[in-house]
């Protein structure tokens, strides 16, 4: 039982920082508790917040938006990431040097990333907006990319792609390097074309790494908040109000901790489901 000594600090910490706070949050999710409205000071209201949550159109709109955002961002990142990894799957002199620069966007804080793009796409003076207008991709330099409903959402997706594709490239490149050589040699001997080798040898062998990369991204994309906060605050209207932004608005703009707790618990539920899936994928990578 002396082994337990190693775990005690962590157990104590987790109880204080996770378990007890969560106890509060679960308790508040059954109450009317709003810091801005003193008459709601924590009265027990049963499942009222949960009922409100299920019947609230904004929740479902936000959930749909979140899932659409995750799906678009992760699939584009995967396609570009695989392409990039294959391009880089060759031994050359400056490889590590180049790779360590490619990874930069993934290491920057989402706030820096958002700021970089807000500046480059700023109406009138944005450097990139100027060239986009010159190329005819946007109508004019007056365009507020983040204040137009359609462009705001897809630009957020593209910015996420810019930030996270490098990580996918690196993960998949590491996977490609570690593949066994024999199947490729055998396929070459059999006279398979490059495309056939890619489809029938590379992809199946790379599958565990691909699963890991995608699930890993799915979980981190669910955490997206900072970029949306800085670039659109969920707007225009609610065009980019993903779940985390919605939860933030209810909790810290409306100060509705009762209903807000319910939403936060729901987001956690989604994240945990995704994590369990990731764990399964990790195990299959280790056993592969």
């Amino acid at each position: 039982m002396r082994k337990l000594v190693f775990l005690l600090p962590a157990i104590g910490f987790l109880i204080a920082v996770i378990i007890i706070p969560y106890g509060y949050m679960i308790k508040y999710s059954f109450t009317a508790y709003n810091l801005a409205l003193p008459r709601f000071s924590g009265q027990f209201i049963g499942l009222e917040n949960y009922r409100k949550f299920l019947g609230e159109p904004a929740v479902w709109k936000s959930l749909k938006l979140t899932l659409w955002f995750c799906f678009l961002a992760v699939s584009v990142e995967f396609v570009f990431g695989l392409g990039g990894a294959i391009l880089l799957n060759k031994d050359f002199r400056a490889k590590r040097f180049i790779m360590s620069f490619i990874i930069i966007p993934s290491m920057l804080s989402p706030i820096s990333v958002a700021l970089i793009w807000r500046f480059l796409l700023m109406p009138h003076f944005g450097t990139f907006l100027y060239y986009l207008a010159r190329l005819g991709i946007v109508e004019s330099v007056d365009m507020g990319i983040f204040s137009t409903a359609g462009s705001a959402f897809y630009t957020l997706v593209l910015i996420d792609v810019w930030q996270w594709t490098p990580l996918i490239i690196l993960i998949l490149a590491a996977g490609l390097v570690s593949l066994p050589k024999e199947p490729f040699e055998a396929a070459l001997v059999d006279g398979a074309s490059a495309l056939q080798i890619f489809k029938n040898v590379t992809l199946p062998l790379l599958k565990p790494t691909i699963a890991l990369a995608i699930l890993f991204r799915l979980i981190t994309v669910l955490k997206t908040f900072d970029k949306v906060y800085l670039l659109t605050k969920g707007g225009p209207g609610s065009a980019t109000e993903i779940l985390n932004m919605y939860s933030y608005r209810i909790n810290f703009i409306r100060w509705d901790f009762g209903y807000g707790s319910t939403i936060t618990l729901f987001i956690l539920f989604i994240a945990f489901t995704a994590t369990i899936l990731l764990l399964k994928a990790m195990e299959s990578v280790k056993s592969a």
């Binding site: 949050m25 979980i219 985390n244 987001i267």
Partner: peptide
């Protein structure tokens, strides 16, 4: 189980850690 719990804590969205902590 303990390992799974640890993993879950780091997969939680930041608000899932920060918001309950705010109460305490």
């Amino acid at each position: 189980k303990f390992k799974l719990f640890i993993l879950l804590t780091c997969m939680a969205p930041p608000l899932g850690i920060a918001f309950p902590l705010y109460f305490v």
